Lab assay of single mutants.
Amino acid sequence: MEVRTIKVFTTVDNINLHTQVVDMSMTYGQQFGPTYLDGADVTKIKPHNSHEGKTFYVLPNDDTLRVEAFEYYHTTDPSFLGRYMSALNHTKKWKYPQVNGLTSIKWADNNCYLATALLTLQQIELKFNPPALQDAYYRARAGEAANFCALILAYCNKTVGELGDVRETMSYLFQHANLDSCKRVLNVVCKTCGQQQTTLKGVEAVMYMGTLSYEQFKKGVQIPCTCGKQATKYLVQQESPFVMMSAPPAQYELKHGTFTCASEYTGNYQCGHYKHITSKETLYCIDGALLTKSSEYKGPITDVFYKENSYTTTIK
């Protein structure tokens, strides 16, 4: 009895394709271990004539594949690729409408935090270190965002349907971005203890939790000093293409032309909904596939993004 075979390709990165001759009487799992086709788990399936010449994702289970996976995804987590594939199996079914010149995501599976993050990423200057993220990001900007969303979920250790947080998501993504040249110098002034300067680099240099107003941050924000008295913390120097200011959701007025974009969060910790506000020729609110415009805006804002380049204080 002759062994019926077909020729397929296996890959971990969709760049390096490895030619395989597979036995049609055995499952993919018996031949390769966990195997995925377009995100779908085909591990328990036997090869079919229609699979001839198709590319299958496999887990990096030998040295060659491990090197290829690390170079593309910059992670050695053995569960990463499987999590990416199972997320992709959902995100490829989502709709990605162009809204006001940006790629958004039609609401499904509690994905409003991903839509808000995706919209924000198209408006701030950011370059990702893992080629996987950078490639998928370019495709997302062009309207094909399924891979990018699935990668975000995998890097953030999230599953489809789980509630997510924009600030946490951005923080994970910033860790995989090139923020080497970003720098922030802060000064804390206390009447009792004097003053202390701190220099922050990388992710810490672009994120701040405690106030939404970048102007206020430049002037000074009140913080408790270690001595128990009130101290003032203010920005001395900022070198970065953008800054992200966050605070627990509270009524906040966004003035046209003073910011790049913002995240609105309605609801409580267990259950809520994100919308995205962007400042173009007027203010726009993007909620999944829905767009509304207004000249002014007041609502429960939790993150505001500002364009920056270089700032030095005039406070002496």
Rank of each mutant, 00 (worst) to 15 (best):
I6Q: 10
Q270A: 09
T169H: 07
G143I: 01
E204V: 12
Y311W: 08
Y172I: 15
Q197W: 05
A142C: 14
L212M: 02
R4E: 13
D41Y: 07
M244D: 00
Y96T: 06
K219M: 13
F174C: 02
K183T: 10
T55P: 04
E68S: 08
L200I: 09
Q216F: 01
R4T: 13
E52F: 10
T192G: 12
A289S: 11
A136Q: 08
V188N: 03
P131W: 04
Q270W: 15
T159Q: 12
T116Q: 08
Y297P: 00
V8D: 07
R184C: 07
C261S: 06
A132N: 04
A247K: 10
T116W: 03
N178I: 05
K7N: 14
D62S: 14
R83K: 13
R66A: 12
H51Y: 04
Q196N: 11
M244T: 01
V221Q: 04
T292R: 11
H51D: 12
H256K: 11
K92E: 06
P241A: 10
G82I: 14
D287P: 01
Y274F: 08
N110G: 04
N110I: 00
Q216D: 13
L102V: 06
A154S: 08
L37F: 12
S104Q: 01
F305D: 02
N110D: 06
K92W: 01
L173D: 03
K219I: 09
D77K: 07
V12W: 04
N16A: 09
K127S: 13
Y297S: 02
S310L: 14
K191I: 10
A115T: 12
Q216V: 08
S246N: 01
Q20T: 13
P248G: 08
G228Y: 01
V221S: 03
A231G: 02
K307F: 08
A140K: 02
Q270N: 15
T192H: 07
K93S: 11
I45N: 13
E52T: 11
Y84M: 03
S86M: 12
E2C: 04
S86T: 08
L200F: 10
K46A: 13
Q31L: 13
L114E: 01
P300L: 11
N309S: 13
N147D: 14
L17W: 00
V42K: 07
V58S: 06
L254W: 00
P130D: 00
P249K: 05
P78V: 09
E264V: 12
A231Y: 04
Y274M: 02
A154T: 11
G210L: 03
G53Y: 10
T278W: 05
C112F: 05
R66T: 12
A108Q: 09
V189I: 11
G194F: 00
G272D: 04
A150E: 00
V8T: 07
A142K: 14
Y311V: 10
T55F: 05
A289D: 15
E264I: 06
L163C: 15
I301N: 01
D135K: 08
T159P: 09
G272Q: 01
K106D: 14
T5S: 10
S171F: 15
E144M: 08
Y269H: 15
K54V: 13
S181E: 12
P130V: 08
I286K: 00
V160Y: 02
A250W: 00
S213I: 00
S246T: 02
F70A: 06
T91K: 00
T192P: 03
S295P: 08
M245C: 15
R184S: 15
K316H: 15
T10I: 12
K280L: 13
V203K: 12
M209Y: 15
V206I: 10
M245E: 00
C156Y: 06
S310T: 11
M244Q: 01
V185K: 05
M24I: 12
E162P: 06
C285I: 15
Q134I: 07
L133P: 01
I286M: 00
A250Y: 04
V58P: 04
D77W: 05
M85P: 13
C156V: 08
D63W: 06
K255S: 07
P78R: 13
V221C: 09
D62Y: 05
P34L: 10
I315S: 15
S171A: 13
I286C: 08
S246Q: 05
A154Y: 01
N100R: 12
E296P: 11
H51G: 02
D165T: 04
N268R: 02
H90G: 14
G82A: 15
L163I: 02
G202A: 03
A136E: 12
T91F: 02
K229Q: 14
L102W: 06
L290H: 15
P248T: 10
H90I: 08
S279C: 15
L126G: 01
D165M: 11
K46T: 12
G29C: 10
Q216S: 10
Y72H: 11
A146T: 02
N129C: 08
Y137H: 07
L88Y: 11
Q230Y: 14
G194D: 01
A87K: 04
N14C: 14
E281Y: 04
A40V: 14
A142V: 11
L118E: 07
M244G: 02
V243C: 03
R139P: 02
F305V: 13
K95L: 12
K280G: 13
E144A: 09
Q238M: 02
L212W: 04
H18R: 07
T76K: 10
G164W: 06
Q20S: 13
L119E: 03
L59D: 14
H176Q: 11
V67E: 11
Y265G: 04
